[in-house]
């Protein structure tokens, strides 16, 4: 043991805990505020309620730099493609809060132009009821979200992501191999028998030979 460790300057933890601790205490929201609920969100930001207490004061107006998509207000059909696009532009990991009755279910606008709940378009993590929700309930939702973030496993996500990648690699190599066999056969037909054995020798060196 090094002397620093003996003095208690080092602690051990799991990677999951550490990553989630960091993530949950700096959830940067992207306020997709459209209507009345956005005004209430503005109140949440200001001095009396103070969103910075939970590390979320850094309201980003670009989807690429934010973690939480905060949909506050009515979503109409005219806006629906835009909301979807914005969600797609956000980087993983990303969470979505539906703030207010309108975002959850369409609210009391049950009409030809309003989307009955944003979950028709994008997945939602936390719903907040109310028309508009009070700042307190907004905080409650943030705490819920923090709990949710806490439970997520970075390692599992990584395995999941890697799984995709591995699948991807496998698929690509399979394509590559098929392509190779095709080309080999073509080549075989073109060259004479004597050369054929040589070509075989060359191709056998290629690692995908085994699957044949």
């Amino acid at each position: 043991m090094t002397p620093e460790a003996r003095e208690g300057n080092i602690f051990t933890s799991s990677l999951d805990f550490l990553v989630n601790w960091g993530r949950k205490n700096s959830l940067w929201p992207f306020p997709y505020g459209t209507a009345c609920c956005a005004i209430e969100f503005m109140s949440t930001e200001t001095a009396r309620y103070d969103l910075s207490r939970i590390g979320s004061e850094y309201v980003r107006f670009t989807p690429r730099q934010s973690d939480v998509l905060l949909v506050a207000g009515t979503i109409t059909y005219k806006q629906a493609p835009i909301l979807k696009r914005i969600y797609e532009q956000m980087a993983e990991p990303r969470w979505v809060i539906a703030m207010g009755a309108c975002a959850c279910s369409g609210g009391f606008y049950d009409c030809y132009c309003t989307v009955p709940g944003i979950d028709h378009i994008i997945p939602v993590d936390v719903y907040i009821g109310g028309c508009p929700p009070r700042p307190e309930s907004f905080f409650d939702a943030m705490f819920d979200l923090q709990k949710k973030v806490e439970d997520e496993s970075y390692m599992k996500q990584r395995a999941e992501r890697l799984k995709d990648q591995i699948e991807d690699i496998k698929r690509k190599s399979k394509e590559c191999r098929e392509d190779l066999i095709l080309r080999k056969n073509e080549a075989c037909e073109m060259v004479s028998n004597t050369v054929r054995s040589k070509v075989n020798d060359v191709l056998d060196v290629f690692p995908f030979k085994k699957g044949r």
Partner: peptide, 13 residues
């Protein structure tokens, strides 16, 4: 026009 006849938008304007 029935108030509930909803029409989705597929593209952008």
């Amino acid at each position: 026009y029935p108030a509930h006849r909803r029409q989705w938008l597929s593209t952008n304007d």
